[in-house]
C-alpha cells in the first residue's frame, strides 16, 4: 500500500498523470483536473465526518494548486525546472543580459509615458507588441526545456518572462484605470 502522505505530496505532473514536459495537452489536463475534483471535492464529502471533510479540503486544495501551476506556462516552466534541479531562483538571481535590460527599460519608459498622458491607444499598442515579443520568448522556453534540455538557458528565460509578465500586468492595470 502506498503511503497516503506520499500520494498527496507527489508532484503536479504525476498527480494528473502527465509527462514531465513543458508542452502539456490542455484538454487532458482539464479533464484529469475535473475527474479528480469529482472524487475529492469537499461538496462530495459534506455529509461525512470532520476528518473526512478536512481530508477532502486538503485534496481539493492540492488539485487546485497543481491545476493552477500547470495551466499557466510560466508557472509550469518555473515549477518543472525546480523539479529538474534548476530552480530559476527568481528572488535571488536578478542577473539579466544587458541588451534585454536595455530593451526592458525602453518598454517601461514608453509605458510610463503613455500612462502619464492616459493614452489608451498607445497602451493597447504596447500591450500587443509586448505580447508578441513574449510569444517568441515562450517558444524559445519550450524548445530549451523539451528539445535541447538546456535548463540553464530555460531558467534565464523564466526570469526574463517574469519581468515581462509583470510589465504586462502593469499595462493592463493602466488600461483599466483609464476606463474607470
Amino acid at each position: 500500500m502506498t503511503s497516503v502522505d506520499s500520494t498527496l505530496a507527489q508532484d503536479h505532473f504525476t498527480l494528473f498523470g502527465l509527462p514531465r514536459s513543458f508542452a502539456v495537452d490542455g484538454e487532458v489536463l482539464e479533464r484529469m483536473y475535473r475527474e479528480i475534483q469529482a472524487q475529492v471535492h469537499p461538496d462530495k464529502h459534506a455529509h461525512l465526518s470532520d476528518t473526512q471533510r478536512r481530508l477532502a479540503m486538503q485534496w481539493a486544495t492540492r488539485a487546485n494548486e497543481a491545476h493552477q501551476v500547470l495551466k499557466n506556462p510560466l508557472q509550469r516552466a518555473h515549477y518543472l525546472l525546480g523539479l529538474l534541479g534548476f530552480d530559476p531562483q527568481v528572488e535571488r538571481n536578478t542577473a539579466m543580459p544587458m541588451d534585454f535590460l536595455i530593451e526592458q527599460m525602453d518598454w517601461r519608459e514608453a509605458v510610463e509615458k503613455a500612462k502619464g498622458v492616459s493614452d489608451g491607444e498607445e497602451l493597447e499598442n504596447l500591450y500587443r507588441n509586448l505580447r508578441q515579443d513574449m510569444k517568441g520568448q515562450y517558444e524559445a522556453l519550450g524548445l530549451a526545456i523539451d528539445d535541447s534540455h538546456d535548463y540553464v538557458r530555460a531558467a534565464d528565460l523564466v526570469r526574463q518572462l517574469m519581468f515581462q509578465e509583470k510589465l504586462l500586468t502593469e499595462i493592463e492595470d493602466a488600461l483599466e484605470a483609464i476606463e474607470a
Partner: peptide, 11 residues
C-alpha cells in the same frame, strides 16, 4: 478515509 481517497484518485 485517507486510503479510500487515495484509491479514488488512483482509479
Amino acid at each position: 478515509a485517507a486510503r479510500r481517497m487515495n484509491q479514488s484518485v488512483q482509479r
